[in-house]
Design a protein around this nucleic acid. Structure first.
Lengths: 113, 113
DNA sequence: GCTATATTTAACCATATGGTTGAACATAGT
DNA sequence: ACTATGTTCAACCATATGGTTAAATATAGC
């Protein structure tokens, strides 16, 4: 429900390691330790990455004993998807409309007016 | 067409100024100069931002005389949207399935087993 | 050719990012 | 209580980012 800032969500998604962490989390919840295993970076680095994901609202960390269990929060993605969907559609329509207006089949490069 | 790296696309979208530039471009093509007007940042800064968007494949710059006309390239968004859609759906299904399995209505925090 | 305009490039600055290692903290297990 | 384990925090480093201003480049127009 919290409004997850597009800034943070997009930023979080822009790193391949973080996307891989999300991929892994998609297979089910996991502790930080297990999340770190497949990556060649240090434990602390993964912890930081998870921090970024957490701040973006994409994952939650729950203390379970001395471990921290991470889970995914799909809701945090809806804002980002909505933004993209809207613009993708809007732009495409716009460009189609322009092309229709000009009656343009692509390939008149350098039209100077 | 070109495979626009998710890294670059998400990164480009993570900045509010750049998203605003895209919004503005959605209203139609515009020169760098006109794009820079509404923003309080310097001309060069906007030029750089456009460079980022261009490298991500989100906009194209075409030289028209001494001006550069920027246009939007919606196709560059499809990869990002696909990623989000897939994961959003996948995760949601997963979590639903888990909840169904456990017959769990949320609210048993700190379950130690 | 000279000058004005549009844009990029270069040099620079402050801060953020992603990475490291090692210390600190919290809990499990003996 | 002690020790081992899981995780975070702190300090640090290199590089990237977003911003600036000033110089360089390219074209338009006289």
């Amino acid at each position: 429900m919290v409004e997850h800032s597009l800034d943070h969500v997009f930023r979080a998604l822009s790193d391949p390691t973080r996307r891989a962490i999300l991929d892994r989390l998609a297979e089910g919840e996991a502790t930080v330790g297990r999340l770190a295993e497949p990556f060649h970076v240090s434990f602390a680095a993964v912890s930081k990455h998870i921090g970024v994901l957490e701040r973006a609202g994409l994952v939650t960390r729950e203390a379970r004993g001395r471990e921290r269990v991470c889970r995914i929060n799909p809701a945090a993605l809806t804002g980002a998807r909505a933004w993209i969907e809207f613009h993708e559609r809007f732009w495409t329509n716009r460009l189609d409309a322009l092309d229709a207006l000009v009656g343009k089949t692509p390939g008149e490069p350098g039209r100077t007016r």
